[in-house]
Design a protein around this nucleic acid. Structure first.
Lengths: 209, 209, 209, 209
DNA sequence: CATGAATGAGAGTTCATTCAT
DNA sequence: AATGAATGAACTCTCATTCAT
């Protein structure tokens, strides 16, 4: 009832709205003014809690990456074979990316801005995720279930594809309407991940007869 | 020999520096002030030739995409079989992306900013490139040399991977130094494209024994 | 007593200086930079309180017109006969125009800029004033005290004359000095209104013998 | 056939288009760029012929005022009695203002911008017109046909009314549509001048019985 | 006479950030 | 913990004017 909110609640309010805002407009195009309005909070409070815009952005990214990492870990433990773990990784990443459409957009944007001040900190956060993936690949190579695997390239093949498919959804729909090109406009995320998994398996285990 | 009062030179000066600037900072973070300084030209000249910032950006993108498309077309004509055309496409795209590091950054940034005003125009320009790719895939399916091919997803697997490998180069180097993870830090672009080609072939033509 | 951090004072400071500035230079030639300097306030404060230049201008006009309208209404109530109400209207308008020299300038400038974006909103504000005047004229016609009255034309005869006499004051002084023309250079505003009232009465009630 | 135009033609082209442009947008809102485009001439030519924007503006005003003065003089000579000369003056001014709608707008704007650099020069040009009017009034007083005449005030009553009626035409139409006020929206210029003449005569020759 | 290229100053507006309360 | 007022730097864009040809 009271107008006062406790610190934790205000912080959460800010970070949750920041996720939405940053994802929609990117870092530069998001204004602290509009964020404050979204939160129904005074603008100065954002700086009270987060030092500055960049600090807030990093907090958002850390939060999102942690959240995702936890889900991936939980699912990972259900399986023991590298091939199953890999499939789980792709499925979980795809689902998460789809359900948090804003997240891949942010990731791509920051990954592709060389020279930015944000990148080092961000990449550190990303490393945890990549380490997990890399471990799965290495395990698969050790037990001979994967052949000729370069984990970095494979990683980008997977997250690059999934992120792009999610972020270009609207564009692909428009393009297929206006022209007569097949852009997988109606493909569901499950179909996309299933296709990707099949192809990645082939790529790691198949042979040209 | 005179440097000033040469329209062609000034226009080129602007567009070439714009490529570098936009790629480094993205659209919003690039200021026309600093562009003018880079060109050693008066700020107003940018608007004299390109109407406004967005117009300049579009000019840059059209310029780059056309340039790239031409090179791809030239190489494409050297081959007749879809599999060779595909290999040529990947090689050329990889080489171009490497030699014009700014380009993948631009592409990723704009592709991933949903809601931007630029996207529709941009995507139209991109369609030409995708159409080319899509045709190769379809031809391969007709003559039974490719199996189970989804050209949109495959397209993103290829350009997503190449773009990310190029733009994250510095990050990957830093990461491998600080930690003990294999990030393909020293991989040359030729190695990357070769690996990618091998895997894409496997994925289109291979079977699990 | 503190001058800063007082919203009401800052807003007033801005609007009062804006009145003077707009009147002197018109809308387009008044710069927000110089307004800020006049107010000894940061330029951004203008936008903090008034959204944009046009918004500020409208606020100024509404403020002035309301202020004037209130005074006219108060004086109007002192009289019951249309002829007395009319005399009061002219006197009050003349006095106000004289005491707020900026106001007629604003009014004339904007009334005469056809095609301006401002005019519709402005005219709506002016209608209240004109309605008042128009009502007086109609009442006079009903009780046969006024003959052959066209309220629109009469209205412009009155405010046109008063506004022009006020705004051209300096010019008329200069002109009478340099040449030998009678420009009513030393006429006081009271003399002008008195003359005008006499003539308007004649025009509404007189006959050619 | 040749692209070259002679000096006289170009100068005329510029001044004629300038009249239209200045009248539509006022002094400040008219850009030399758009004027050049209207003339289908190079922008630099304007400065070649007219030194600067202000010089061009003055040339326009002088041109218009001279033109008008000549017509008034011609008509003036047709009559000998002051009362007829006065009627002729009002009729001619009204007709001219109506046919050159841009002109009164300019006049009002400049008359009301005290402090402008343009005013002195402009007022000098206007004096010729006012002198003419003033002479008529004085003659009328000498031969006792006019009573109690203040030529400056009368002058502003006449040109103020006519200018305002012409420049507010569109506004008055809009206002009468939206609200239920009589704004003389459909009044023709001839009706307006006729009414004005009648009233001015009454005001100079009538008595309250 | 005529042109397109170039310039510099300034316009309105936005925004991250800080201060006083 | 919270607010509204204030700031300064930056940004895109316009325009009168001049220069070189």
């Amino acid at each position: 009832m009271s107008k006062k909110r406790d610190a934790t609640k205000s912080k959460e309010l800010i970070i949750n709205n920041a996720k939405i805002l940053f994802a929609k407009n990117g870092f530069t195009n998001s204004s602290m003014d509009s964020l404050a309005k979204m939160c129904n909070l005074n603008k100065a409070m954002i700086f009270y809690y987060y030092k500055n815009k960049q600090g807030l952005f990093e907090a958002v990214m850390i939060d999102v990456l942690d959240d995702m990492f936890k889900i991936i870990e939980v699912n990972d433990k259900k399986y023991s074979k590298p091939i199953d773990k890999l499939e789980s990784f792709i499925k979980t990443y795809g689902k998460y990316a789809y359900e948090h459409r804003y997240f891949p957009a942010l990731l791509l944007k920051e990954l592709s801005s060389s020279g930015s001040v944000l990148e080092q900190q961000l990449f550190l956060n990303m490393q945890k995720l990549y380490s997990k993936f890399s471990q799965i690949i290495q395990d698969g190579q050790k037990d001979k279930s994967f052949k000729d695997a370069n984990s970095m390239i494979l990683y980008f093949m997977i997250i690059g594809t999934l992120n792009l498919m999610v972020t270009t959804k609207d564009l692909r729909v428009t393009a297929s309407k206006e022209n007569d090109i097949d852009t997988c406009a109606n493909c569901k995320i499950e179909e996309i991940t299933t296709y990707l998994i099949k192809k990645i398996k082939l790529l790691l285990q198949g042979e040209i007869k």
